[in-house]
Design a binder for these strands. Structure first.
Lengths: 146, 146
DNA sequence: ATAGTTGCAAAGTGTTTGCGCTGAG
DNA sequence: CTCAGCGCAAACACTTTGCAACTAT
């Protein structure tokens, strides 16, 4: 049972229709390694079904987000990125030079912050997903050399 | 010497013209306690100078950002917020119920994360400004009671 | 059969840009 | 004087919405 099938099951159980459009959009997202913009999802689905509308893509994104099956990543660029939710919470580091993204474990790096804010301020932080910009190892090396 | 004066000095030294519009925009931002959207700045300046254009507000924001005199805060709402840069780096917790924002010290809460990412991944994170959403003390109490 | 979903087109936000005029230096 | 910066209007990029036609159930 693939991830896509699992998600389709959830949607079916919730009483949503499993339209070809929804299946294609899900497959498009699932078959990509990293995160994608709505436009990228649209383009990918278009290859097999050229009539798909960007509005349908956005509506499906909303649906999946509402059920926490999809994670929205705001890189502050004015365009959101999306990826399927995973069991283990994680965050991203994004290199501002080469654009590469590296996953970072929530438990190890951000959970301590969450705990500290709760203890100190009684503030219950929803640290669902962070995008941390910076310079990756390779680009730092290049910069030091060049 | 006020904060506004200091900023005006920087701009003058850099050869920029100190137009009334720029002075008014700066005053508007400086005289507000928290962060403001471009539209809020525009509205505030309009009260004393109704001809100010939103484009001028955006251009001034860009100018100040470029010189790191202004910090842009992306709350992921599609609308950026701005506040004057301060000496001590800080971040914000934003209550998703009541909208209240609480400052948090960089050194104490986020610097450890930065250090860990550098050590572990050789990734140099620009943790300039984070907005962390969640539930504040009061709203948590309300929720527990109600 | 029928309500949920689609494609299309249009509208809605927030932000940026081209351009001729103006005023700070 | 002169060019940086202004107001205006239009363009932009991304996302949402109203509606009639269609289709998964």
């Amino acid at each position: 049972m693939t991830k896509v099938d699992e998600i389709l099951d959830v949607l079916r159980e919730e009483g949503y229709r499993l339209t070809p459009q929804r299946v294609m959009i899900l497959s498009a997202i699932a078959s990509s390694p990293g995160h994608m913009t709505a436009e990228e999802i649209h383009e990918k689905v278009k290859k097999t079904y050229p009539y798909i509308d960007i509005a349908t893509v956005y509506r499906t994104i909303q649906l999946l987000k509402r059920h926490r099956l999809l994670v929205e990543i705001d890189l502050g660029s004015g365009t959101s990125q999306y990826e399927l939710a995973r069991a283990e919470r994680h965050h991203h580091m994004v290199c501002r030079e080469c654009g590469k993204t590296i996953d970072i474990d929530h438990r190890r790096f951000l959970e301590p912050v969450r705990a500290a804010l709760l203890q100190e301020f009684d503030f219950e932080a929803d640290i669902d997903h962070f995008a941390i910009f910076g310079l990756c190892k390779e680009c730092r090396a290049k910069k030091a050399a060049g």
